[in-house]
């Protein structure tokens, strides 16, 4: 049992990171009262531009930062069309997803004359961090040590995210925007300014999450996000819209995904069924949590 479950847990930690990052940004938009279904498109944008800029600049840090910049630009467009032109956030979110899937292929074709997988030879694999002493901690060391900087950065950001949301006026106002925007306006503050900021934050975290996806591979694969942005949205709901809830929910997802990768190799189950596991699993979790919420509501009232 032990010998195969630890590698699964280890890869679960890697797999959960883009989900955690995207859902953290999505948490800000969600708390400000906007259903941000653009996470998928924003992740894809971050994934594409980070790896392309890394290729052109030769620096992972510069590439990631530029990729994040492009993603934030797209999220700013999303925010201004939604808030200033008063569009339905659901529809503009779908627009971002469609736009990102079109743009990445069109640019990939224009830059590399290739609509399929683009492999960048000059991009080395992400360095894995950890000291031998930390890694020698039994079990925990095997699971949590030896990941790329993205993983540890995401944990740091999670703490910052908690701090900002619950310990700063900015965070209070973001939450107030979603709960009762009239209260905020009556104090002379503009709810839409806080919504705009939330969209920018989700652009930032999705840019970072996307960068991890492609830099890990050293390649861009069309539609590399494959529903991760949608799952991030589900992580927000499953995590009960709390920062540390997101961590647990994202970990459960990472685990399901890691297990299905393992099962694909080890068990004789058709791969399509295994790929369907995360969706079925999420569905059951959604149903379970809504039954729980309904019963809880019934008891309270």
């Amino acid at each position: 049992m032990m010998h195969f479950s630890i590698p699964i847990l280890h890869s679960a930690v890697t797999i959960m990171t883009p989900l955690l990052l995207a859902s953290m940004g999505g948490l800000f938009t969600e708390l400000s009262g906007m259903l941000n279904i653009a996470l998928e498109g924003l992740l894809l944008t971050g994934a594409f531009f980070s790896v392309v800029f890394t290729y052109f600049t030769g620096s992972m840090i510069a590439g990631t930062l530029l990729g994040i910049g492009c993603t934030m630009l797209l999220s700013a467009i999303l925010a201004s069309v939604t808030l200033n032109l008063k569009s339905n956030v659901f529809i503009t979110g779908l627009a971002v997803n469609l736009f990102a899937s079109g743009l990445t292929v069109v640019l990939s074709f224009a830059l590399f004359a290739n609509k399929g997988v683009v492999v960048f030879d000059n991009i080395r694999p992400l360095p894995l961090l950890g000291t031998p002493r930390l890694a020698s901690i039994p079990i925990l060391g095997d699971i949590f040590i030896g990941h790329s900087a993205f993983v540890y950065l995401s944990w740091l950001l999670l703490v910052i995210c908690y701090f900002v949301l619950y310990r700063t006026p900015f965070g209070f106002r973001i939450r107030a925007t979603g709960l009762h925007q009239e209260a905020l306006s009556s104090l002379g503050m503009r709810p839409n300014a806080y919504r705009f900021a939330s969209f920018l934050i989700s652009g930032f975290t999705c840019g970072l999450g996307g960068a991890m996806l492609t830099l890990n591979l050293g390649a861009f694969v069309p539609n590399i996000t494959a529903g991760k942005g949608w799952i991030a949205l589900v992580v927000i709901f499953l995590g009960n819209k709390k920062p540390f809830g997101l961590f647990i929910a994202a970990f459960i997802f990472g685990l399901a995904d890691a297990f299905s990768n393992y099962a694909q190799g080890a068990l004789n189950i058709p791969s399509d069924f295994i790929l369907a596991i995360p969706y079925v699993f999420t569905l059951l979790a959604m149903i379970g949590s809504s039954i729980y919420a309904k019963n809880k509501g019934a008891i309270e009232s």
Binding site: K86, S87, L98, F99, G102, V106
Partner: peptide, 17 residues
């Protein structure tokens, strides 16, 4: 895929009050 870009622009704006 330029079709997707054009379609997404329609999507972006179509619900704008």
């Amino acid at each position: 895929e330029i079709a997707a870009i054009v379609q997404s622009i329609v999507f972006f704006l179509i619900s704008s009050e």
